Computed example of a mutant assay.
Amino acid sequence: MSARHTRVLILGAGPAGSTAAIYAARANLKPLLVTGRRAGGQLTTTTPYVENFPGFAEPVEGPVLMEQMRRQAENVGTKVMYDIITFVDISMRPFRLQGGFGNTYTTYTADALIVATGSEARWLGLPSEKTFKGFGVSANAIFDGIFYRNKEVVVVGGGDSAVQAALDLSHLASKVTVVHRRDRFRAESILKDRLLSKPNVDVIWNHAIDEVIGEHEPNKWVTGVRIRDVNTGDVRELPTHGLFVAIGHDPATALFRDQLDMDRAGYIKVGSWSTKTSVPGVLAAGDVIDPMFRQAITAAAMGSIAALQAEKFLIEHPPAPIAPARSAGPWWPVRPLHGGG
């Protein structure tokens, strides 16, 4: 077991965490950024091109944008750790966190903590969806779309994520059918216009997915979905080779359940124009506190605020003494892993 102490520990390497790292490093706080399972956050897996981030005259690839943020953070003094946090204790300072897999553990202690763990894809919650997850059911059009070249696919959802997924798939699949439970999209106008102009895209309004249909032997694969008219209750089957679920995301805050004040949806509560949580010295930024805007630029802005408030907190609150490390073995109970987006 190894141990690391830092003045500021940042969980998550998306726009919020990376920007917090840049600001904290420039304040000479020598921050430590723990990436989580998905270094770079949602922009590395759900968005091929970013067109609305200031400073880029041409669309920039999501992974490239996040790589630039990471390199900038490192260049100004951030130490990046590719690790997953499995337990957090913020009942006293220094805050204590545990990371690692198997028999390799790292204990982290920090005088201030910035939570920027992002969000995770939301699923429909159908038993059949779980059965075929990875066998025709996916939440990632960027990574899995290539397997559906010249095939028919269904996308469920009506927000930016769903419309973008359908657009991405329209370049690969022979036909894309979008199933949306309302009679209009909630996505940006420019995305809606692009999608509706695609000749190989159909939209089925006012319908929901009731069941995923497929074969089980000799291998599992999806053959269709059962959809229901939300107004009449009529049910019919829609043949497809794959289902892409794009109905939004939930904040990746399970690690902090019962430790930080949250709303019913799991978003961490912070003050107005603030990233301060219910625990002094713990700040939160990005998708973990934002159920409304969920943009890279707003997450980055929150990250800068979190770093500035962490700096102010550390000036006003001298570091607490670090408890001696335990001699062997993990000291923590099992907790959910952090997403790191």
Results as ranks from 00 to 15, higher is better:
T78P: 04
T106P: 00
G55F: 04
A24N: 08
Y82G: 02
Y148Q: 02
S128G: 13
M69C: 07
G100V: 02
F53W: 15
E61C: 04
V88C: 07
A27G: 05
E129Q: 13
A24K: 11
F101A: 14
L32Q: 04
L43K: 06
E129M: 05
G12M: 06
S18P: 01
D83K: 12
P15N: 06
Y23H: 12
A139G: 15
R7H: 15
R26E: 13
D83P: 01
D144Y: 07
G134T: 13
T35W: 00
L124D: 13
A110Q: 01
F135T: 08
G125P: 05
G17N: 06
L29G: 11
Y82F: 14
T117Y: 00
Q42Y: 03
F135D: 11
P63G: 08
I22A: 05
T109D: 13
Y105P: 05
A121Q: 12
T46R: 15
I114R: 11
A112Y: 09
G14Y: 06
A24D: 10
L11H: 06
T44C: 10
F101K: 14
T78A: 10
S119M: 11
R71K: 15
Y49Q: 12
A24W: 12
E67D: 12
S128L: 03
E120G: 14
Y148G: 06
I90D: 04
R26Q: 10
G41E: 08
V115L: 07
K79H: 09
G134M: 13
G100Q: 02
